[in-house]
Amino acid sequence: MSDALATAVTNTNPNSCVTVQTARLCKPWHVSQQGIDFVADWEAFRAHLYDNDGAGGGGNTTIGFGHLVHMGPISGAASEAPFHAGVTIAQARQLLLQDLRDPEHIVNKKIHVPLFQYEYDALVDFVYNLRHHNDALLNLVNSGHYDRVPAKFMEYTWASGAQPSGLVKRRRSEGNLFRDGNYDSSH
């Protein structure tokens, strides 16, 4: 049986006590290995610097599993120097683990309701991919309307005025993960 989420005294009988239980987890949360793999699968490994964001135009300088080197296209900036020879998969995974700390912190800070591990992992992937302008989805989670969250993911499918099919698939996959615990990251 799950640990008690809370206890409360009812107003109908002052001598009664109700214990509320849930299988959802309470804080602090940490992304699971399945969650890390889910993010890595969506980001796809790139051994060398790239700046194509997938929406048809130039993006930000990136390497590995979506590690942001700097904003804007490849320019020869000093921040690119450590990556000129590229990275191995192991190095890229280490960068990913470091990069997931901020999204984990954001979700832990902004979410105030219990979550299943897979719900948390879906939110971490979402925040990793969309660092800003994610408050509406996180606020919906906090409202306790867990059933509405998968559809809300689909409101975040636009990039640079276009609706890239890869982004639509990723949001659908995040919604499925949040709803069903299905870690399917197939493109």
Rank of each mutant, 00 (worst) to 15 (best):
E119P: 01
S16K: 12
H145R: 14
A47I: 14
F38M: 06
V149L: 09
N13R: 15
H132M: 14
I106R: 02
P82W: 09
I106M: 00
V87T: 08
I74E: 08
I111N: 00
E104K: 09
A151D: 03
A8N: 07
V20C: 03
E119R: 08
L96V: 11
V149Q: 05
D3F: 13
A4C: 12
W42F: 15
A159M: 07
T10E: 09
K152H: 03
L123H: 00
A85I: 10
N11G: 06
P14G: 04
Y50H: 15
R148V: 00
N129P: 04
V127A: 03
Q21N: 11
E155L: 11
N176F: 06
E43G: 03
S165F: 04
L123Y: 02
H30A: 13
S79P: 08
A136D: 10
G59D: 12
V141Q: 04
L123M: 05
G57L: 15
A8P: 05
F126T: 04
G58I: 15
V31E: 01
A4Y: 14
N176G: 05
S16M: 05
A77Q: 13
A90Y: 06
G66I: 06
N60H: 15
D37Q: 14
L177D: 05
Q98N: 05
P28E: 02
A4I: 15
Q34T: 04
G56W: 01
A85Y: 12
L68Q: 02
N129Q: 08
R179C: 04
